[in-house]
Design a protein around this nucleic acid. Structure first.
Length: 437
RNA sequence: UCCUCAGUAGCUCAAUGGCAGAGCAUCCGGCUGUUAACCGGAGGGUUGUAGGUUCGAGUCCUACCUGAGGAGCCA
């Protein structure tokens, strides 16, 4: 090995065509053809096929390479060549090898290039992440999160993260994870909203971004027990402002992914024409209209109930972009939602349903800003006031109309990537019957 | 919590109640352009666990364990 040669990343390999370089990474696959080896190397930034001719390598180096198991770590040196026969257009003519760790036949890498069942893959999630598909998803997820933060930053929002350990819930404790907090009980947060409301009264526009937890015994392709949520909260915002903010955020995120993550979407075989259709404005339908539309489409929705998964699909199929469903009956919604002045039985709330059957990605509302009304609602929901006295203070000291929403990051990743299940949208998914690895 | 399904080699799956098999992976051999390479050979099994029915159980019955798909609820 020539230690004076530059170490390069595979993503920029084309810039080094015709030159000798060093490359370090892992062995993704190894094909053999007589005195010729075709190792595929990956380094996290990409994949490249190497070609090792027996005559170009020291005999012991050739034999060492030949015997390496999948996912062995190594450093190679060689000449970068453009070659139409190589996947990716470039290949590395290997002339030197340094093995960092050889994976041996006694314990071969468990995930082979062939197909595997989901149970096996989930048990090996820590290794499954190395596959091309999972790397692509991680990079889209990263792009989405970066876009979310850029969007709020450009719009003058101030990050105001909420605590993860909380004294009580805003919607009952039945679906909360309980933890010992010294001599008291505490709960893992299911939403940062109440805290975001406090911060909004300090800085005007804020958002929280972090993990949230639901101990719901939900077992579907849309549920995790631990998921990341972004929750903007805006002082003086009305429901219309909330809806406008939500659609601008989603349109921005989709546009950004289309701009910067095309190769990953292609690897995931995502139909990008479906994403290119995500243009402002998004359709808005009232809950009343939604019920009519669902039932005309063959559903059997009863007025006054929430939309089920099938109902959501029946409705979202009618549009080529996310649809905003607003003004649900107060009875099926949370205590803090402002009633519609034109019909107090309806709440000034909104859900955004993603297209293609991906369901709800956003839920938000205008909040009750009147102290007496809020107290009445808390009593109606039979919630204890003592743990949220501080929250009532927000209505005692300069209360103003305000609102916001929560967006589930994994559901957005799942939709944009076109995944079958949200568990692929986060590196280490937590689901009801799995906490390993 | 409820409904449905599955568990056989490291992996993906076969096997009418009658000798437990294939492909991939691994090992050995062949091949100087392979594309989830290919060709030839070898090793590899307490059929999830515990009972039961039967001359005989991977297969039928019961319970349990583990997991998956879905419902309700939610982002």
């Amino acid at each position: 090995m020539d230690s004076t040669l530059p170490i390069v990343e595979i993503r920029a390999i084309g810039e080094h065509a015709g030159r000798r370089v060093r490359l370090r990474g892992w062995l993704y696959n190894l094909r053999e053809s007589g005195k010729l080896l075709f190792p595929i190397l990956r380094d996290g930034t990409g994949w490249i096929q190497g070609v090792a001719f027996k005559k170009n390598l020291a005999p012991e180096a050739f034999e060492a390479l030949r015997g390496l198991g999948q996912e062995s770590s190594l450093e190679v040196e060689g000449e970068v060549r453009a070659d139409a026969r190589a996947p990716g257009g470039f290949e590395l003519d290997i002339q030197g090898l340094h093995v960092l760790q050889a994976v041996t036949p006694e314990r071969p890498y468990p995930i082979t290039p062939k197909e595997h069942g989901i149970e096996f893959l989930l048990e090996h999630r820590h290794l499954w992440l190395r596959s091309q598909r999972q790397v692509a998803i991680l990079k889209v997820r990263h792009g989405i999160i970066q876009a979310i933060r850029d969007f709020f930053d450009q719009d003058g929002f101030v990050l105001g993260d909420a605590p993860i350990l909380t004294p009580a819930s805003c919607e009952g404790t039945s679906n909360l994870f309980e933890v010992d907090y010294f001599d008291e009980k505490a709960y893992l947060t299911q939403s940062g909203q109440l805290y975001a409301e406090a911060v909004a009264m300090a800085v005007g526009k804020t958002y929280t971004f972090g993990p949230t937890f639901r101990a719901e015994k939900s077992k579907t392709r849309r549920h995790l027990t631990e998921f990341w949520m972004v929750e903007p909260e805006v002082a003086f915002a009305t429901l219309d402002d909330v809806m406008s903010l939500a659609e601008r955020l989603v349109a921005f995120v989709v546009a950004r992914v289309l701009e910067r993550r095309r190769p990953e979407l292609a690897l995931l075989e995502r139909d990008v024409s479906k994403l290119e259709a995500i243009q402002l404005p998004f359709p808005r339908v009232s809950y009343d209209e939604a019920v009519t539309r669902v039932n005309q489409a063959g559903g059997a929705m009863e007025y006054g109930t929430d939309l089920g998964g099938g109902d959501e699909t029946l409705l979202s199929q009618q549009f080529d972009r996310p649809v905003l469903v607003h003004r649900y009956p107060t009875a099926v919604k949370a205590f803090y939602m402002q009633p519609d002045p034109e019909n107090p039985n309806l709440a000034l709330c909104v859900d955004m349903l993603a297209p293609e059957g991906y369901g709800e990605i956003i839920g938000g509302s205008q909040r009750i800003h009147d102290l007496e009304l809020l107290q009445r609602r808390i009593a109606e929901h039979q919630l204890p006031t003592e743990p949220i006295e501080w929250y009532l203070d927000l209505r005692r000291f300069g209360t103003v109309p305000h609102g916001g929403f929560g967006m589930g990051v994994e559901r957005v990743v799942s939709w944009i990537c076109g995944l079958e299940h949200v568990r692929e949208a986060i590196p280490f998914p937590r689901t009801i019957y799995r906490i390993q690895p």
